[in-house]
């Protein structure tokens, strides 16, 4: 049954992707891309990747769509029809495709539990998570501790993107335009009432995902995206100014910097306590508790930076407004 559903879903994915490419209305293309993300998130879930599915749904379908739409507000909606000149593209694409298909003929059966990919490191991760970190979610253990340095890098990727968008969109405008501040949906009663009802639940769910990441799917990234989403929803309903009153730009900048500093700082404590960078086991007397403390701290840092960056980026796009 799941297999049939999977195949159905994968076909839908290809169809949606084709629709994204074919449509000439950019607004439609962006919405279809959101649907694509949601479908691929379901596929991930069927493939046992609950954490990835949650992230893709929150980041890909949610935040990404909002960013594209708020950028589209400053751009044109229609794609100009283009003619010809696609032969080289088709050729290079087909070559790559054929090469990939050629490689399939030789790849081992992924699903086989005895495939090398599943036998080399995975048993160690499972066992060590149980023994030395003692949290149920192996994903969180790998993300936070075994490969914590990658995650540190990831936080800085987010930070860099935030810095970049703020830098690019704070340049002086070429011509004099009046600053547009969005009115939101103040005059639309129904979306406003429903939205208001939703916000506390999204926020609560965000906090749950933040602090429950060690037990179930979730963690700082997903939580940051959800919390940011609830504030963005508030901004959409009540206007940008009200959202800025809740969390002003200065505070957001502080939030994104201090989250990254918190994460790296926890790592430095490892060095100061005579061990290695990002070694959490020296944070408390009992190494197992210390690992858990470390993971909670760095997840908090992740959540702070992601929330700060996503909100500042959103505000930057909205403030840039429509060009006249």
């Amino acid at each position: 049954m799941t297999a049939v559903f999977s195949i159905f879903l994968l076909c839908l994915l290809v169809i949606t992707a084709a629709a994204v490419i074919r449509t000439t209305n950019l607004f439609v293309a962006v919405m279809l891309m959101g649907i694509f993300s949601l479908l691929i998130a379901v596929s991930f879930f069927l493939l046992d990747a609950a954490d990835v599915a949650l992230t893709e749904a929150a980041v890909g379908a949610g935040i990404s769509t909002v960013l594209f739409l708020s950028a589209l507000a400053a751009l044109t909606e229609e794609e100009r029809k283009q003619a010809g000149g696609r032969v080289t593209a088709l050729i290079s694409v087909s070559i790559t495709g054929l090469l990939m298909a050629y490689a399939t003929l030789h790849k081992p059966d992924f699903g086989d539990p005895s495939a090398p990919a599943h036998q080399h490191l995975t048993p160690w991760f499972m066992q060590t998570t149980a023994e030395q970190i003692d949290i149920p979610n192996v994903i969180t253990a790998i993300l936070g501790s075994f490969r914590g340095y990658d995650t540190l890098g990831e936080v800085f990727v987010v930070l860099v993107a935030g810095i970049g968008v703020l830098f690019l969109l704070s340049s002086p405008r070429p011509s004099s335009q009046d600053k547009r501040s969005s009115e939101g949906l103040k005059h639309y009663l129904i979306p406003r009432m429903i939205g208001r009802l939703l916000i506390p639940f999204i926020l609560l769910f965000g906090l749950y995902v933040q602090f429950h990441g060690e037990y179930g799917p979730g963690g700082g990234f997903q939580a940051g995206a959800l919390i940011a989403a609830s504030i963005i929803l508030y901004g959409l309903l009540e206007g940008q100014q009200r959202a800025l009153a809740v969390l002003p730009i200065k505070f957001l900048r502080l939030l994104m910097a201090s989250g990254a500093l918190l994460y790296a700082g926890v790592g430095v404590v490892g060095i100061l306590r005579g061990s290695y960078f990002l070694d959490y086991s020296v944070l408390a007397a009992d190494p197992v508790t210390a690992q858990q403390v470390g993971i909670i701290l760095i997840e908090a840092g992740v959540g702070m930076t992601v929330t700060g960056v996503l909100l500042s980026v959103y505000h930057a796009f909205v403030a840039r407004g429509k060009l006249q």
């Binding site: 990835v52 992230t55 599943h118 499972m126 994903i139 790998i142 993300l143």
Partner: peptide, 15 residues
């Protein structure tokens, strides 16, 4: 269990 490592890598890649 399904293999957790590629999932962790993709969490990073999505971001």
């Amino acid at each position: 269990f399904s293999n957790p490592l590629p999932q962790v890598l993709i969490l990073t890649a999505i971001v």
